[in-house]
Design a protein around this nucleic acid. Structure first.
Lengths: 339, 339
DNA sequence: TTGAAAGCGCTAACAA
DNA sequence: TTGTTAGCGCTTTCAA
């Protein structure tokens, strides 16, 4: 037999009707079948090397067996561990991942979500949400089960799984205050991302707790990139030379801070302390090693996948937000302010 | 109409038979249809927002519309850009990527390849090949079109797309020789990967060209990781204290070299020069900035995808190996040997 | 050029 | 518990 065996081949060999074979091979009850029949069918299937055709099954059951995973840019080092976490959990549940990279382009986001829907994905895990993302907002009101990771829209209707940035930023501010810093500035990421808003709010809150009299110094970077961090920091140093510590929106921005400090002839941490966020690979090995907040990326991915599975099974109600614990990592880029 | 529109809905609205509608919507000839009919059908489809059901089409045409992408560990920084390159090209051609991460476990490779085949992937792009990988060897003799990236089996029957490591290693050795190094050692990656073999052979050849009298010093690291590099280098320094330059199997190993040198109280590059391979993100910012070989990761992915497309179309014959140009990147970790 | 009919492989509904 | 029948939505013969 050249073609791959079908359920009819299995049924024939087992001497039963295809429907019976199908039922016998279905692990979930309750169209229950005699143990004997089940054994016969299983044996025939094994002997033939039968694998059900997912396409045909899919057409009949309306379940495609895969999930779309939409990322803004896989090259961003926070994403791969998250995607791995997603992928590991989904495969284990028999779902495959259709990977879609939007290249940070909103129109691609729309097109890809559309395409994934057309391909009958059972659900979506979306890491591309901007605060006003139209495509994501559409999902919130559609019928396609969706879980957001890391980033969310302002609407906040879809379930989100992310790191507990607020806690991390709080710990970071505490750390800097304990070191004796009076003037702590925040160089944020782009304003259209919820991560920026979340971290900035946490920064303001923490600062208000420790330095109630102080007007917070906040500068908005144009992107989560080294050049954006560099430029914003340069501006900051010009406007506020009294700053002794900078809390960066993420690690890339922190590295931009390093550059701006070097440009200004300042040394980190002796003149200015710098802290990042995410604990990207290798930031422990740059000079000086970066103090930062580690987020449980793999767990975030895994939790997002599990949340989607829950959504798909429709069983338990799903938590609207899961913020997983972050960890302060103190390294060489923060130290006491010079006097 | 709650359910999504089918070809029958379109046909009905256009006043034609479903088969006619199907033909009208098929851009590829030649069951040609009147311009008028085509227009009517297109209009009806547009008005209904019709999207053909890929599952049903797939069942009929035996083409699933996706490709499996098998990676050893997405967390390895060389991979994300490659996967992006693959993904970009495939989406553009209407194919989706099923992402499968083997976590570097051979048994998972077998299982995932099996699963991808069962899901009727049209082809595979595989980045997990070890030299003796049974699953990949099976693909070479099967009917599932497959392209390898970066790593290949010893069999060498499947088409491969990779960086031209040999050229990069050659340039690196030339660079070190020009700096005046007499004793250049090679700390490799694991022996079961073809990349290791390729780079080692290039190292030996280049060294033979420049230092014909010299027996090459080569140490095999256990893995492409920092600890493996550290351990192998420690051993090397003990056995061959006369070495003044180390060519590492990749950047991670090079960073391991840094550690071993620090352990031994040696400074890079003053006591020993170190060079890596791959130009991973941030290695330009470690201390000292790493001299390395950049590989065109995105292009490798894109070329692999294009090769698979060629294989699928069956049109042009496909090159068995495509080695894309690499670039020597000289930074601070290499310098003249001390006298 | 279009319509009719059939069937991809599977499973859900209904009968026995 | 098992068999029968039908049909998921599409495309591809074959006829007209």
């Amino acid at each position: 037999m050249a073609r791959r065996p079908t359920i009819r081949d299995v049924a024939e060999r087992a001497g039963v009707h295809p429907a019976t074979a199908s039922r016998a091979l279905d692990p979930t009850q309750p169209g229950r079948i005699t143990a004997a029949t089940t054994r016969k069918v299983a044996r025939a299937a094994r002997e033939l090397g039968y694998r059900p055709d997912p396409t045909a099954r899919s057409l009949r059951t309306r379940r495609s067996g895969f999930v779309g995973v939409v990322v803004p840019d896989l090259t961003n080092p926070v994403l791969p561990p998250i995607v791995r976490g997603i992928e590991a959990v989904l495969w284990e549940s028999g779902l495959a991942c259709l990977l879609a990279d939007t290249d940070n382009r909103p129109e691609r986001e729309t097109a890809l979500v559309d395409e994934l829907r057309a391909r009958r994905c059972e659900g979506l895990i979306v890491a591309t949400a901007t605060r006003t993302s139209a495509a994501v907002a559409g999902l919130a009101h559609g019928d396609l089960p969706t879980v957001l990771v890391t980033r969310e829209t302002d609407e906040r209707t879809l379930p989100l799984v992310a790191g507990d940035d607020a806690h991390g930023v709080e710990a970071l501010v505490g750390h800097l205050v304990k070191l004796g810093h009076e003037r702590i500035a925040h160089v944020t990421g782009p304003l259209d991302l919820s991560t920026t808003v979340r971290r900035e709010a946490a920064f303001r809150a923490a600062l208000a707790a420790h330095r109630p009299a102080q007007e917070p110094v906040v500068l908005h970077g144009a992107a989560f990139t080294i050049p954006a961090g560099r430029q914003a920091t340069a501006e900051l140093l010009r406007a506020r030379p009294d700053v002794t510590a900078i809390l960066a929106g993420n690690d890339m921005i922190a590295l931009g801070c390093y550059e701006a400090l070097a440009d200004a002839g300042l040394r980190c941490p002796w003149d200015v302390s710098v802290a990042g966020h995410n604990d990207m690979p290798l930031v422990s090995r740059v000079s000086p090693p970066l103090t930062t907040v580690a987020i449980p990326q793999h767990d975030i991915g895994a939790a997002a996948a599990r949340t989607l599975l829950a959504l798909l099974s429709g069983a338990a109600p799903v938590a609207r937000r899961q913020l997983l614990p972050t960890t302060l990592i103190v390294r060489g880029s923060t130290g006491p302010p010079k006097r």
